[in-house]
Every structure is written in C-alpha cells, then in structure tokens.
Simulated scan of single mutants.
Amino acid sequence: MFDDQFCVKRSFLEKPEMLKKRFRTAALINAALSPFLLLFLLLYFFMRNAEHFYHHPGAAGSRRWSALARWRLRELNELPHYCSHRLDAAHAPACHYCAQASVD
C-alpha cells in the first residue's frame, strides 16, 4: 500500500476496488482465524492461572487495588516498587475499614 517514502501508491488511489478487495480478504482471514485465537487465549489463561486457583481458591475473588486507586494513591514520581510496598502495607487496614462499613 505504501511506497519507499511511506506515501500511498498511485495504484491504490487510481483503483479503489483493489484496496476494497484487499480489506475484504484481510477481514475474511481475520474472521476465519478468530475462533482459533479465542481458543488459544482461553487455554493460555487457564494454563497460566490453574495452579494458582487450585492451591489458593480464595484468591479468585480477593480484592485488589484498582488502577484508579493506584493512580490516586501514588505519589509524584514514585517508583513502582515503592508504590506496591505502600499499597501492600495499606491492604490490611483497608480490609478492616471495608468490613466495619459493611456491618451497618
């Protein structure tokens, strides 16, 4: 589609049906391969996490800091391992606070 200067080739500008045909071919290939990709991703997820779920079944529903919470609690220019250390230290008090609020 692009030439050596990364400009659109004249053949695509003069023959839009050629570009349309290429897009349709790519869409058909993508549609044909998507079930296999989905199967692969499901197997990959299962194999990656099966041992952890087997040995720690309570971890499947455990609470984690959301991306928004990490972003808000992270200090300016703080290194990621310092932020993880602070959030790990705050986990127990946060769980205690959530448990007391849910008793009401």
Score class of each variant (00 low, 15 high):
32 A>I: 05
33 L>C: 11
33 L>I: 05
33 L>H: 04
34 S>D: 09
34 S>M: 13
34 S>L: 13
34 S>E: 14
35 P>I: 02
35 P>R: 02
35 P>G: 02
36 F>T: 05
36 F>I: 06
36 F>R: 08
36 F>P: 01
36 F>A: 11
36 F>E: 06
37 L>M: 10
37 L>W: 04
37 L>D: 04
37 L>E: 08
37 L>R: 10
37 L>G: 08
38 L>I: 12
38 L>Y: 14
38 L>G: 15
38 L>W: 11
38 L>V: 13
39 L>P: 01
39 L>N: 07
39 L>S: 13
39 L>D: 06
39 L>M: 12
40 F>I: 07
40 F>H: 14
40 F>T: 09
40 F>Q: 08
41 L>M: 09
41 L>T: 08
41 L>K: 07
42 L>Y: 11
43 L>K: 05
43 L>D: 03
43 L>N: 05
44 Y>P: 01
44 Y>L: 09
44 Y>W: 12
44 Y>N: 07
44 Y>K: 09
45 F>Q: 11
45 F>D: 14
45 F>W: 15
46 F>E: 10
46 F>T: 07
46 F>P: 02
46 F>Q: 09
46 F>V: 11
47 M>V: 12
47 M>T: 14
47 M>G: 15
48 R>G: 09
48 R>Y: 10
48 R>H: 15
48 R>M: 13
48 R>K: 15
48 R>V: 13
48 R>W: 08
49 N>I: 08
50 A>C: 08
50 A>N: 04
51 E>L: 15
52 H>S: 14
52 H>N: 13
52 H>G: 08
52 H>C: 10
52 H>F: 14
52 H>K: 11
53 F>H: 08
53 F>I: 05
53 F>E: 11
54 Y>I: 12
54 Y>T: 13
54 Y>E: 10
55 H>Q: 13
55 H>M: 08
55 H>D: 07
55 H>C: 08
55 H>G: 03
56 H>F: 12
56 H>D: 13
56 H>R: 12
56 H>T: 14
57 P>M: 03
57 P>N: 03
58 G>I: 03
59 A>Q: 06
59 A>C: 09
59 A>G: 07
60 A>W: 09
60 A>S: 11
60 A>V: 15
60 A>H: 06
61 G>S: 11
61 G>K: 14
61 G>I: 11
61 G>W: 11
61 G>L: 14
61 G>C: 09
62 S>P: 01
62 S>C: 12
63 R>C: 04
63 R>D: 03
64 R>T: 07
64 R>K: 14
65 W>A: 00
65 W>K: 01
65 W>R: 00
65 W>I: 00
65 W>T: 00
65 W>F: 09
65 W>M: 01
65 W>E: 00
66 S>W: 10
66 S>E: 04
66 S>D: 05
66 S>I: 07
67 A>M: 05
67 A>P: 01
67 A>Y: 00
67 A>T: 03
67 A>L: 09
68 L>W: 04
68 L>E: 04
69 A>R: 01
69 A>T: 02
69 A>C: 04
69 A>W: 01
70 R>D: 00
70 R>S: 00
70 R>T: 00
70 R>L: 02
71 W>Y: 06
71 W>P: 00
71 W>A: 01
72 R>A: 01
72 R>Y: 00
72 R>N: 02
72 R>D: 00
72 R>K: 09
72 R>P: 00
73 L>W: 02
73 L>I: 02
73 L>V: 01
